[in-house]
Design a protein around this nucleic acid. Sequence first.
DNA 1: GTGAAACTTTGCAGATCGTGCAATAATAGG
DNA 2: CCTATTATTGCACGATCTGCAAAGTTTCAC
Lengths: 215, 215
Amino acid sequence: MDDTEAQCGLRERKKRATRRALHDAALQLALERGLEHLTVEEISAAADVSVRTFFNYFSSKEQAILGDNIFAVDEEQVAALMSDAADVLDGLYGVAMALAAATAPRREQVLMRWQLMERYPALLPQVFARLEEFEKVLASAVAARTGTAPDDAYPQLMAAVAGTGMRTAVRRWTAGHGDHPLEHHMNEVFGLLRDGLAPYGPRGPSGPREASKAG
Amino acid sequence: MDDTEAQCGLRERKKRATRRALHDAALQLALERGLEHLTVEEISAAADVSVRTFFNYFSSKEQAILGDNIFAVDEEQVAALMSDAADVLDGLYGVAMALAAATAPRREQVLMRWQLMERYPALLPQVFARLEEFEKVLASAVAARTGTAPDDAYPQLMAAVAGTGMRTAVRRWTAGHGDHPLEHHMNEVFGLLRDGLAPYGPRGPSGPREASKAG
DNA sequence: GTGAAACTTTGCAGATCGTGCAATAATAGG
DNA sequence: CCTATTATTGCACGATCTGCAAAGTTTCAC
C-alpha cells in the first residue's frame, strides 16, 4: 500500500491497465457508434471485464469516456506559478500555458474528447463539474497571491473568468480542429483579458465605474 | 390551439397547474428529504399524478426541481439592451440588471433553488447547460453590437466572461443567503470587470494596466 | 513453499430511471 | 350530443447503478 507498490506492484499495474482499457474502449466506441446507442455492457465487453467491474472504476459511461485529469494542473503547481508571476493575470496566464503544455503530448486524444463533448451535451456536466473544482483551486491561489479572503469577490471572479477563458480557448481550439496550437488560443484570450476586455471601447459616459471594494 | 385558448382554456390551465404542482412538490420534497433519497414516484404521488405523467412534463427529477427559465431574459430583450447601451460591457451589465429584476418577484423560490444547487452537484449540469445557451445568446448580441463575427474570439470571450460574472454574482448572493440584493452583487462583479479585473496590479513599480487599444 | 490477510472481480438481486405503446379519460368545438 | 383532439395512465422493457457475498488473485511474513 506504500508508494513503492504503487509503481511496481502487479496489482496496481493491472488496475491501471483495466482502467485504461475501459477508458480507451469507451472513447473508441463513442466515436464509432455515437454516445446514445452505446451501453455500459458494450464497453465492458470490449474491455473484457464484467459490467459490475466497470462500475468499480467509473460511475457512468460519461466518466469513462472523459477519464481523469481534464484540467491537469495540480494545486501546488498552480500555487507556484501564481507566486512567481508578475501579477495575478500573468499567474493565471502561466497556469493556462502549463495546461496547454500538459495537453500537448496527448494532443489527439484530448482533441477527440473535446470534440465528443461538443457533440454530446450529456458530457458537459462532467466537464463543468471539473471546471468548478479547477476554479476553486484558482480562487485559492488568487486569494493567496493578493492577500484577499477566498470568499471575497475578487478572487472568485478572477478565478471564474480565468477558468472560463481557458474553456473558451479550448473550445476555439477544438472548433478549429486543432489547426493552431492551443497556446495560440490561450494567448488570444489572455491578451483580451489583459487589455481589460475593452477593444471595443465606451461610446460615451457609462455605467458602474467603481469596484465597490478593492483591498 | 390558438393563443386565446392558451390563456383561458381549461385544458391549458390544468396543464400549467399540473406542471406547477410537480415543480412545487419536487422543490419542497428535495428541501425536506434531500435529493438523493427522493424518487420520481414520491414527487408524482405528492402532485397526485402517475409516474408516467411526471415524465410527460419533466425528463428527470432535476429538471422538475429547477423548472424553467433560470436565466429569464430572452433573445430580443438582450438585443435591445445591447443596442441601447453605451458600450458592450454596459449592455451586458444591463442584461445582468434585467436578470436581477426578473428574479426579484420570486426571490425566495429562486434563492431556494440556487441553494439546492450548491448542496447537490447533481443539479449543476442542468444549470450549466442553460448558462451555455444563455452565453450563446449573449455572444450573438455582442457580435451584432460590435460588428464582429459570432465565432470571433472577442464576442465569445466577452459572453463567456459576462455569463460567468452573472453566475459568480448569483453564487455570492446565494452564499450570503440573499442578505444583500442580487443587484448589489451584480454591481460588484461588473464594477470589477469595468476596471479591467486589475485592482491588484503588477508587483513592480509600474502603474495601472491599461487597455493597449481602445476603439 | 505455505498460509493467512488484503484486495479485486464477478454474478445476482433489486431499486430507480426513462421511453414507447396502446387503452382510457377528459376537453374542445360544432 | 357527437366527434376530433389531447392528456393521463398502466404496462412492458431496457438501461443505470448499488449492495452484498462468493470466488479468484496478489501480497507478504514466515
